[in-house]
Each structure stands twice: as C-alpha cells, then as structure tokens.
C-alpha cells in the first residue's frame, strides 16, 4: 500500500520524536511533581529532586522499551 517501505501503523520517525518528548514530560510531571508536592507537605528537600530523577529514568526506560528494544 505505502511505497515508502514503512510498515503502516508502525511508529515512524516523526511520531517517535514527539512521543519521546511526551513521555519525558509526563514522567517529570507525575514523579517530579509528586515529589515536589510531598516536599512541600512534609518539609523535606530530597523528595523533589529524587522524584525528578525517578521521572526521567522511568521515561527513558519506557522510551527504550517502546522504540529501541526491537
């Protein structure tokens, strides 16, 4: 059907780039944001930065699973 050699429906390149940004943003938002809110609540200071690192790590792991593993 398509003459560009791409498998239809497979994540092609443009889509992958936008998805990567989406995963990074949501990883930072949910874990980093959660950590920062816990920091505010409990009065600690390490949960925010730990959450940000956890968010980036989980987002990059997810990207690896989705686009790089196969």
């Amino acid at each position: 059907m398509s003459d560009t050699g791409k498998k239809p429906g497979s994540p092609n390149e443009e889509g992958a780039f936008w998805s990567i940004i989406g995963y990074l943003v949501s990883g930072l938002l949910i874990w980093g944001g959660g950590g920062l809110l816990l920091d505010k609540w409990l009065g600690t200071s390490f949960l925010g930065i730990g959450g940000l690192l956890l968010g980036v790590t989980s987002a990059i792991y997810l990207i690896w699973l989705r686009f790089i593993r196969d």
Partner: peptide, 21 residues
C-alpha cells in the same frame, strides 16, 4: 542508527526539560 539517535535525543531532551522544571 535509529535507536541510537532516539536514545541520544531522549537524553538531550531530558536535560532541557530539567531546566524547564
């Protein structure tokens, strides 16, 4: 090349988003 480019892009983009946050 594509996985390597994606991984490098993800790592570089993560730093930019860190700056934003």
């Amino acid at each position: 090349l594509q996985p390597i480019a994606f991984l490098g892009f993800a790592l570089a983009e993560a730093l930019a988003l860190f700056g934003l946050v």
